[in-house]
Design a binder for these strands. Sequence first.
DNA 1: GGATAGCGTTCAGTTGACTGAACGGACACT
DNA 2: AGTGTCCGTTCAGTCAACTGAACGCTATCC
Lengths: 265, 265
Amino acid sequence: MADSRTPASPDKSGAASPAPAVTRAAAVLDALAASATGRLTLSDLSREVGIPKSSTSNLLLALEEARLITRQGAEFTLGRKLVELGAAYLGRMDEVQEFYRYCEQASVLSGETVRIAMLDGTNVIYLARYEGHPAVRLTSNIGDKMPVSLCAVGKALIARLNVHDIEEMFPDDAELPVLTPKSLRTGAALKAQLRQIREQGYAFEDEESTTGVVCLAVSVPTRGAHGPSLGLSVTALKATYTPEQGSQMVKELKELAHSLGNPMG
Amino acid sequence: MADSRTPASPDKSGAASPAPAVTRAAAVLDALAASATGRLTLSDLSREVGIPKSSTSNLLLALEEARLITRQGAEFTLGRKLVELGAAYLGRMDEVQEFYRYCEQASVLSGETVRIAMLDGTNVIYLARYEGHPAVRLTSNIGDKMPVSLCAVGKALIARLNVHDIEEMFPDDAELPVLTPKSLRTGAALKAQLRQIREQGYAFEDEESTTGVVCLAVSVPTRGAHGPSLGLSVTALKATYTPEQGSQMVKELKELAHSLGNPMG
DNA sequence: GGATAGCGTTCAGTTGACTGAACGGACACT
DNA sequence: AGTGTCCGTTCAGTCAACTGAACGCTATCC
């Protein structure tokens, strides 16, 4: 199975288009998701995605019939079905269900804000959030994305990748996104932290995405051969954070990570 | 399910198919979401959706490139991008953000399990959930669907529709889905309740979806001309429920509904 | 008021995608 | 081993979808 037979495939780095209508439809959805207001007209979309208006019109008709988008007068928005599909994805992840159960009965974590996230390229996507006592009220929601270099869970996740992949994603002179004065700015700085993270077994964020807030994170052993990379993080206020508290939270995070990675009855 | 063996007429619901590849791709996603395990092979999908294998293969390739599905060895699952898109949809709804804020500072509701839901055909979809003190721990998650006849929020939402639409959706002899002995079983029974709901201004559920649990719900005034129909519900244990508590909760629900429907600074 | 610009829709011609059958490989059963 | 079934892929022919320009329409500007 290792040697996939590619006899005469004209691979040209740019992928061929087997079903272009689908690729285009996905581009339309992306454009809607990326737009500021989430409401675009046919002409807007046609311009944005680079598809003739008449073709775009047909695409939109089909997408609307599938309820993947909704027509609001002259404007289009994302459709309800996307919520269902996203929920179906999350519902299939046993880890998310176990995550909730564990957080409730945990001793330290049950009072904190805990999140589980998934690696997606150079971003993490938050899959679920547990808020014990809202000492720290997060503005982020399920499904939100965050660059890996700006959060503890992101660093914890890429720390597990092999060195070659990391080097490709973050060359030394890579310019990283910046949210606060403490945000890491170069690939070199990030990789230096990754070494430290591998040694100590957990990741740390010190006001790199939000001033006044610190995070701790660990990665979850991948369940099965093809599962996504999952990570766990705890958020705390820097003002009240103490190292003893931190080591206790890391301990419970690792316990949770272990139980998520090795399911049992 | 409906095995239409029509050889050359892929028309669905009598309408022409402008971009059939998109409609088919959506059907593939639906099939994956509806399947028990969420993991189907190419042949499974081909059989399920009724598309030739070679065409299905092309569709899957395109869907995979768009990350709407993920290939796991020989099986396919829903893809990460669906979480992003679903989150983008929810993130655009100001009502969801306000919902969280209000629940935290509410006096009665802040201690209860409150949900906001959206009407989608004859189902409601839960968009967000606030759990003050987990007296009642719900098994439902964001994005889950529930038939309108089985939950208070569903009844509250269809009670606002015009009589003609209701009659079309629920003729007197319609057989409704049943979850408990108390579930409404006919369209006639449902419509009788709807009259009562319109009079008293809020909807009620008495162990119709889960034994031992009651719900109260109100509908949110639709914001703008094209917004979805939103509703709010509170869940309580029947054992501890009292009418006084109920009227207080309804009062706060209506207050929240009003503020969601009429945004201001 | 008249003119302009932009929007979304319509229509016929041409290209590209979809079908269906055959192929090589991987198990499971005899 | 032999053999059957099932899986996923490949390929050439046919048909349908996509393109692009023109149209009617509304809102905006002078």
